[in-house]
């Protein structure tokens, strides 16, 4: 049972780490907390569901590309201009939560069903030390970790990655040396929303998606990111895996209704001990 709990926790944490990565990328680069990314991601999940009967690959692509575009556009026409006029966290909270409600309303209006499940093909089962795990869940976990590695490699070894880092560390100087910082912001926001969409697709395939899932994923993603040290990608992943374990074990030992009590109690406890999160916030990737 312990092993089962660990595996379930790791997978849950792995999937949650995608919206956490989304939050970390957006906040790390733009400095803006975007509370709408979960809802936008789930909107993309609904789009994928809608097109799933045509072709799975295209359906996933439609959802992810749509979310990237939405992230890019809201940053470009809304969040960057507010930021340039000196918007503070409270303003961004209100603006991005409002955006979330806009997308929730759109989902309600556009899609025929308020709750869906994405039937993605299963890829068999894997036996780990006597515990049978669905291959698809392992794939979800590996995908999340792979995404993290890719982001790290991009920022270390490509010019685009270096300009992201430069922008997050010193915006004024980044502008002065000729980086198109507004474009960097828009792309970061697009990637963040696209990651949230991939998270939502996995979530919708393993559990289900409804109008509220976006808020759950978004806020949980945010809280986990803060616990790990907001903007710090490694901290975010470690925190996601730990929180996944906490959810899994509290579910096993005490039952599902205690999950959120234990989880958020631990969150508060961690933040009292380490207000900047487990690995500390560096507002950088």
């Amino acid at each position: 049972m312990i092993l089962n709990g660990i595996i379930t926790g790791l997978i849950m944490g792995g999937i949650l780490s995608l919206p956490v990565l989304g939050v970390a990328v957006i906040y790390g680069i733009t400095g803006i907390p975007n509370f709408a990314i979960g809802v936008i991601g789930v909107f993309g999940g609904f789009l994928t569901w809608y097109f799933l009967s045509f072709n799975m690959g295209i359906a996933i692509l439609v959802g992810v590309v749509f979310c990237f575009a939405i992230g890019y556009i809201i940053q470009r026409i809304l969040l960057t201009p507010i930021s340039e006029r000196g918007g503070d966290s409270t303003l961004f909270f209100i603006v991005t939560v409002s955006l979330g409600f806009v997308f929730e309303g759109l989902m309600r209006a556009i899609f025929p069903r308020p709750s869906i499940s994405l039937a993605l093909p299963r890829i068999g089962t894997i036996n780990i030390a006597g515990v049978t795990v669905e291959g698809f869940k392992i794939f979800a976990l590996l995908f999340a970790l792979g995404t993290l590695v890719i982001i790290r490699l991009l920022e270390e070894h490509t010019e685009i990655g270096k300009s992201w880092q430069a922008t997050s560390q010193n915006l004024k100087l980044a502008k002065l040396i000729g980086i198109k910082t507004n474009r960097v912001f828009s792309i970061a926001s697009g990637i963040g929303c696209a990651l949230a969409c991939v998270g939502a697709i996995f979530w919708g395939s393993l559990y289900n998606l409804n109008l509220m899932t976006g808020w759950d994923l978004g806020f949980l993603g945010f809280i986990i990111a803060v616990v790990g040290g907001i903007g710090n990608i490694w901290g975010g992943i470690i925190s996601a895996l730990i929180m996944g374990m906490v959810m899994s074990f509290s579910g096993y030992l005490l039952g599902g209704m205690w999950q959120s009590v234990i989880l958020y109690f631990i969150v508060i406890l961690v933040l009292i001990v380490a207000p900047k999160g487990i690995l500390g916030s560096e507002r950088s990737l």
Binding site: K162, Q165, A166, Q169, N170, K172, L173, A174, E282, S284
Partner: peptide, 8 residues
């Protein structure tokens, strides 16, 4: 001031 990228 602020003339380098401090964490690179």
């Amino acid at each position: 001031e602020g003339n380098i990228f401090p964490l690179m």
